[in-house]
Design a binder for these strands. Structure first.
Length: 887
RNA sequence: GGGCGAAUAGCUCAGCUGGGAGAGCGCCAGCCUUACAAGCUGGAUGUCACAGGUUCGAUCCCUGUUUCGCCCACCA
């Protein structure tokens, strides 16, 4: 067995690539169904195949991996289902840009060739994010990796579409939709992002027929007047009552349009007159339907004015706006222009301003699907964490509108509907039909639209497991245990999975949904390419290592709060990884020749220090399990950080040195065992957070391994035997207080560590005396003493510095160390601090209502504290008086 | 317009069911103490946004105010 030399500084790169490959090859990520073990399953939020790993992915997948590794180690059969999303519009855009660079467009290629080209692109450069997830350490079951357009999932999509159609939950309708004039497709309501912008409110005069009056309408979109088919006023508005039923002459196009009355018009706003453009405004559309108005579409699918716009035909919509305003002005029909704030809707893929557009589209009737999805959360069958998001979910589900699912692009699941040229009937079928189901004609054409990308991702939790077949995976792993996602896709994805899962599986898709925060930059701004404030996770990984990065994300992941990622914090956790590494180096150096297999805990005689660290380790296990069970990732991470650094390294390792370097072979063996045991368990606790470094160290530890990888070792649970060490742990706390007291004098008096000092401890009871004597060696070495005298009721030497630690008085003779003036100042400072405490507690205890009404144990505790402070103050004052006498 | 969240040390943030506020970084002082200078030891630093209320007691619960941030919404 060649003992390898561990470098002084942890180098993540080689360790990471080595272990990830080994784990994957060994099949540790693979879930077997059924297995007899308790199932735990998570489906990954499938990243777009166009995607490149960003901070959001890094956080999302780190948290999922922490859960999966923790559950796997806790004895569950874990399925983490990975895959990617075909991302219809986004992917089509990428390939279209490529074509444009070659001076071509998709229409030249034709539909089939274009789709082929997209598949080719996917094969060559799509899905690079998978490799990036592996660098992050994600323990996904890659053997099961799925793609939303692979054969199985396409079959599921088809099945769902046909069934919903047959149930009357999918229909076609001609109405206004959000249209992206750049992507040339319809968008669903939530695919439109509203942004507040400054705009103008143009006031236009429309001449009233048969009169010299004008009606002044206010509009934010003057170009749409080309499609006006009415003006409306409120029926209760006395100003215009006489005009209702009459007409105005629409300028520029010179069309007579009616003056109608509708409650929709707000008398208070503007002039109280609204121009009605049913084909280009959602409200106007409703008004138009109520009044049977013509709906004149004045744009083509690129947002260019069409023939209905007369002389403006061929003008792009914003150019048309300018021209319309100019022409109205020239006619003296532009009354004025006000500044006006408005929320402009943009395409979520390309940011182009969307156009309300009249067209025939496919819809899902969501009301009947939303009901059960609401009930499931209300009844707690799916729990949303943090709970505050439940309200957002309810609000949306309660006000949900039908979902436009057709997209006029080519890349995606083509809608399985065929139109009959002969009878006009529609055939919807799972298998491509050869004839019209109504008239039998074979002159049928398939719908050219594809489905919204989110239609297929809504099926993800069951389609990835083989639905509509009844598979062992579905039986074992559906419903999934947990979904980890950001709130930005709560509506897009989570809500729709709830609806589809309940409808087709009869059961919720996941028991819990953990909604995590957004990762922002150090200034709290959303990271975006245009702002140039993007931190690339892979750059961070290269610079600091995956483990440090993951630990940073976990430590920051407090519930309900955005993460502001500052690079210094990552460096801090890189230091933590290095600290762990060096603690391990220390352990390995001192465990040479030690065989843990030959030792059992029961045979060992444990010191206070040994019991203390085992007790604290046990508490750390309790806290980590509790934190992860509640998705308190930050508490889990920070708790382990504190245990590792402030307890294990700062105290136990220092304590252990005494015995490791000493002559007592029994003590040496005992400490070796405790050191080994603590480190070994600590590594397991840390493994979900820092998978690589923990495996590397764990493999180097002596002893027979319970598993071939730490991934498969049992996650530490609370050990009842260690809970009995609570008293010993408290004793150790007293020893530590004494050591800290001595160090305090040393630090305050600026005595360098190289200078060993003599110390006297004075106890006031036997128990205390025994405890101090028993831990004499530890005190001497940790406080760096030349000598230590311990006794009962000892007198303070005249020129000694004093410190009080519980019931122990600490005297440090100052002879030749420092002058008494310094000691005088230090004592005055100490007394000053205590005075404040005494004053506060005194007031509290003098308050009769506190003593009467507060719980007895609280009062007793406060009294105890006061007595302790008073005692400490007395001792310090005595010595201050004596010190002064020396001058 | 509706809803949600935040305001705590110089900075970035923790703080579970009310009992004198914590971490990391930074700062000051002293240290190459044979695991680690990416380190060790000691230290300083807070009207817990503001104003009321409940309570013996409020950073925590209630009301209001201010300032930020986000989400939703068809007022031209």
């Amino acid at each position: 067995m060649a003992e390898k030399e561990l470098a002084k500084v942890y180098e993540p790169q080689s360790v990471e690539s080595k272990w990830y490959g080994a784990w994957e090859r060994a099949g540790y990520f693979h879930a077997v169904a059924p297995s007899g073990k308790a199932p735990y399953s998570i489906v990954i939020p499938p990243p777009n195949i166009t995607g490149v790993l960003h901070m959001g992915h890094a956080l999302n997948n780190t948290l999922q991996d922490i859960l999966c590794r923790w559950k796997r180690m806790s004895g569950c059969s874990v399925l983490w289902m990975p895959g990617t999303d075909h991302a219809g519009i986004a992917t089509q855009n990428v390939v279209e840009r490529q074509l444009a660079a070659e001076g071509k467009d998709r229409f030249e290629l034709g539909r089939e060739a274009f789709i082929e080209r997209v598949w080719r692109w996917k094969g060559e450069s799509g899905g690079q994010i998978i490799g990036q997830l592996k660098r992050l350490g994600a323990s996904c079951d890659w053997e099961r990796e799925r793609f939303t357009m692979d054969e199985g999932l396409s079959r599921a999509v088809r099945e769902v579409f046909v069934r919903l159609y047959e149930e009357g939950l999918i229909y076609r309708d001609n109405r206004l939709i959000n249209w992206c004039p750049r992507c040339h497709t319809a968008l669903s309501d939530i695919e439109v992002e509203h942004e507040d912008r400054k705009g103008s409110l143009w006031h236009l005069r429309y001449p009233v027929e048969g009169s010299d009056r004008f009606l002044v309408v206010a509009t934010t979109r003057p170009e749409t007047m080309l499609g006006d088919t009415a003006v409306a006023v409120n029926p209760a508005d006395d100003r215009y009552k006489d005009l209702v039923g009459g007409h105005v002459l629409l300028p520029l196009v010179n069309r007579m349009i009616p003056i109608i009355a509708d409650d929709y018009v707000d008398m208070e706003f503007g002039t109280g007159v609204v121009k009605i453009t049913p084909a280009h405004d959602f409200n106007d559309f409703e008004v138009g339907r109520r009044h049977n108005l013509d709906m004149i579409n004045v744009f083509d699918e690129s947002g260019v004015v069409n023939a209905a716009g007369h002389q403006y035909e061929g003008l792009e919509r914003f150019a048309a706006r300018q021209k319309v305003v100019e022409d109205m002005d020239a006619l003296g029909l532009l009354e004025r222009i006000d500044e006006h704030a408005l929320a402009l809707g943009g395409c979520y893929r390309c940011k182009t301003v969307v156009e309300p557009y009249l067209s025939l589209q496919w819809y899902v009737k969501v009301g009947p699907l939303a009901e059960p999805a609401l009930a499931a959360v209300r009844e707690g069958r799916t729990r949303i964490v943090p709970q505050q998001w439940e309200n957002t979910y309810y609000d949306w589900m309660e006000n949900i509108r039908d979902w436009c699912i057709s997209r006029q692009i080519w890349w995606g699941h083509r809608i399985p509907a065929w139109y009959c040229d002969h009878c006009g009937g529609i055939t919807v079928a799972k298998v491509d039909p050869t004839a019209c189901s109504t008239c039998g004609s074979d002159e049928i054409r398939q719908e050219s639209d594809v489905l919204d990308t989110w239609f297929s991702s809504a099926l993800w939790p069951f389609s990835t497991m083989g639905w509509p077949d009844r598979t062992p995976e579905l039986a074992a792993f559906y419903p999934t245990s947990c979904l980890v996602t950001g709130f930005d896709i709560l509506f897009f994805w989570v809500a729709r999975m709830m609806m589809m899962g309940l409808h087709f599986m009869g059961e919720v898709p996941f028991r819990e949904v953990y909604i995590h925060a957004l990762v922002r930059d150090a200034q709290g701004q959303k990271m975006s390419k245009s702002k140039g404030n993007v931190i690339d996770p892979l750059t961070v990984i290269d610079a600091y290592g995956t483990d440090a990065f993951r630990f940073t994300l976990a430590a920051f992941a407090a519930q309900g709060r955005d993460i502001k990622l500052a690079e210094e914090r990552i460096a801090g956790f890189r230091n933590f990884a290095n600290k762990l590494w060096n603690a391990a180096r220390f352990a390995l150096m001192n465990l040479e020749g030690f065989d843990p297999d030959a030792v059992t805990l029961g045979e060992l005689e444990l010191s206070s220090g040994d019991k203390w660290i085992l007790y604290r380790l046990n508490e750390a296990a309790r806290e980590t399990n509790g934190a992860l069970a509640d998705y308190r990732f930050n508490e889990g991470a920070m708790g382990l950080y504190q245990f590792t650094w402030s307890e294990f390294c700062d105290w136990y390792i220092e304590l252990a040195k005494n015995d490791l370097y000493g002559d007592d072979q029994d003590r040496r063996r005992t400490v070796q065992y405790v050191l080994w045991h603590t480190l070994e368990h600590l590594l397991r606790l840390l493994h979900p957070f820092m998978p690589f470094i923990t495996e590397e160290i764990w493999q180097a530890l002596p002893g027979t391994k319970p598993a071939p990888s730490i991934m498969l070792a049992a996650f530490p649970q609370v050990n009842g035997a260690f809970e009995g060490f609570a008293d010993a742990a408290r004793n150790m706390d007293r020893i530590m207080a004494v050591i800290s007291g001595i160090r305090n004098i040393r630090g305050e008096m600026e005595v360098p560590p190289s200078r060993e000092i003599a110390v006297i401890l004075s106890c006031d009871n036997d128990e205390s005396l025994r405890l101090m004597k028993h831990n004499e060696a530890a005190i001497i070495s940790l406080a760096r003493l030349s000598s230590l005298a311990i006794g009962m009721g000892l007198e303070k030497p005249e020129d000694a510095s004093i410190q009080v630690a519980g019931d122990v008085r600490i005297f440090v003779p100052l002879k030749g160390l420092v002058d008494v003036e310094e000691e005088e100042k230090r004592l005055a400072r100490e007394i000053g601090k205590i005075d404040k405490d005494i004053e506060f507690l005194g007031k509290k205890l003098e308050n009769p209502s506190f003593v009467e009404r507060a719980p007895a144990d609280v009062v007793a505790k406060e009294r105890e504290k006061l007595a302790e402070f008073a005692n400490k103050k007395r001792l310090l004052e005595e010595s201050l008086v004596k010190i002064r006498r020396l001058r």
